[in-house]
Amino acid sequence: MRVADRPALHIAEVAKPSPVRALDQILPSADELTTMLGAVGLMGPLVEGGADMLLHSVGEADATPADCVGAAYRLQKVVYDAGSARTVASRSWAGGDANGPSSTGAFGVVQFATPDDAQEFFAAAADKWHRCNGQTLVLQRPDAHAQGASRITGVAVDRDTVSAVVMHDGGSTVQRALGVASDCVVDVEISDVAGADPMGTHDAVAVVDLMLQKIGMS
């Protein structure tokens, strides 16, 4: 066979692994939260590491419907295990005044192996949140003899964000929001001691937008 007759050799492009990021720099600062949420607050300690830093609050068989866990609870291992989560960083925040705390928040960022992995995870999560709109997530923990319910409402899906209002049966109402940029998914939860915010998920989405901007600059 002549060289000219040989079939052309095609080399598939290998997905480039994500660069190492300083994930703590993506999280909001206390000053930024004071400006955005209108309350002076204190940040909790930074928690960072591998995928083992994801939370284990909800077990695989604890929730019905299981696909709604991500909308109701932040940074759960049972949710992110479906993707290729590589590193995680998170911090909590409590804001208020002399009369006590007025709101609290928890902010996390999960870096995936590649941007495609992050986008795929976000697309699947947004679809699940959309299908969970108006549903009640029931938690049952037979070992702890405990049961709880969370009502998921107001789900809104945008190009790179998804948000929801979650009413837990303990009386708390929280704003939940996810966002994606490059190889990272950001995961935000904000609660207001006074009850549901008339602006819906405005605060949580604003914090997500801030974190996504930081990813773009890192």
Rank of each mutant, 00 (worst) to 15 (best):
A181C: 05
I152A: 08
M167V: 15
A181Q: 14
D158I: 00
A177D: 10
S172F: 09
V188S: 08
R176L: 14
V155T: 06
V162Q: 04
T153S: 15
D169T: 09
S172Y: 06
C184H: 00
V155Q: 02
Q175G: 13
A156S: 13
S182C: 00
A181I: 06
V174Y: 13
T161G: 00
A156M: 09
D183Q: 05
S172L: 10
S172E: 10
S150Q: 11
D169L: 07
T153I: 12
V157Y: 06
G154Q: 14
C184P: 00
S172I: 09
D169F: 11
V188A: 06
S163H: 05
A164Y: 04
V185P: 04
R176Q: 15
Q175T: 08
G171S: 01
G154W: 01
V188I: 14
V186Y: 11
L178N: 10
V162G: 05
G170V: 01
R151D: 09
R176A: 15
T153R: 14
V155L: 02
D187Y: 10
A164I: 02
T161Y: 00
S182H: 05
V174C: 04
R151W: 11
D169R: 08
M167H: 15
D169W: 09
R151N: 10
D187Q: 14
V185M: 04
I152M: 11
S163K: 04
D183A: 08
S182Y: 01
C184A: 10
A164L: 05
H168V: 03
V180N: 02
G154D: 13
R159A: 14
L178I: 08
V155R: 02
S163F: 03
D158C: 01
G179W: 09
A164V: 04
D183S: 11
G154I: 03
V188P: 07
A177P: 11
S182Q: 05
A164F: 04
H168Q: 09
V186D: 11
A181D: 12
D169M: 07
D183M: 01
S172M: 12
Q175A: 13
V180H: 03
T161L: 00
G171R: 02
L178R: 14
G179L: 09
A164K: 06
D160A: 07
V188L: 07
S172N: 10
S163E: 06
V186R: 10
G171H: 03
D169K: 06
G154R: 14
R159E: 14
A177E: 07
S163Y: 01
V188Y: 06
D187P: 12
T153Q: 14
A177S: 15
I152P: 06
R151Q: 12
A156G: 04
G171A: 04
V157Q: 10
H168G: 10
V180F: 00
I152W: 10
S172R: 11
V186F: 06
V188T: 12
M167K: 15
R159H: 09
Q175V: 13
C184D: 01
G179C: 08
C184V: 12
